[in-house]
């Protein structure tokens, strides 16, 4: 398992999700990704995206004026 971060600051919907989607594609099951954003909508959207695709949201919080979503990638390894 490895940890990654993604800077999605100053991007507005749906780009933080698009960037998350692209990043997760390159990751492996069990990897952890922290996405840092400024668009408040990500607190709904990234968890919704994770639900749809079966990834696990570890936390989705506001921290020092920024929004941070941490997720664990879940993929059927094949």
């Amino acid at each position: 398992m490895s940890r990654f971060t993604l800077d999605a600051r100053n991007l507005i919907c749906p780009l933080p999700v698009v960037r998350t989607q692209e990043k997760v594609e390159q990751l492996r099951s069990g990897d952890e990704l922290e996405v840092v954003c400024t668009d408040p909508g990500v607190l709904h959207d990234i968890p919704a995206w994770c639900r749809i695709h079966g990834h696990e949201v570890i936390e989705a919080v506001e921290r020092e004026g920024e929004l941070v979503v941490r997720l664990r990638v879940r993929k059927l390894e094949g």
């Binding site: 919907c13 749906p14 909508g41 709904h44 919704a48 995206w49 639900r51 749809i52 695709h53």
Partner: peptide, 17 residues
């Protein structure tokens, strides 16, 4: 509500988006 509507729809219908 601050949400992306397409994601919301997919989530409601239970389909991948």
């Amino acid at each position: 509500p601050k949400r992306n509507n397409a994601l919301w729809v997919a989530d409601q219908l239970g389909v991948e988006l």
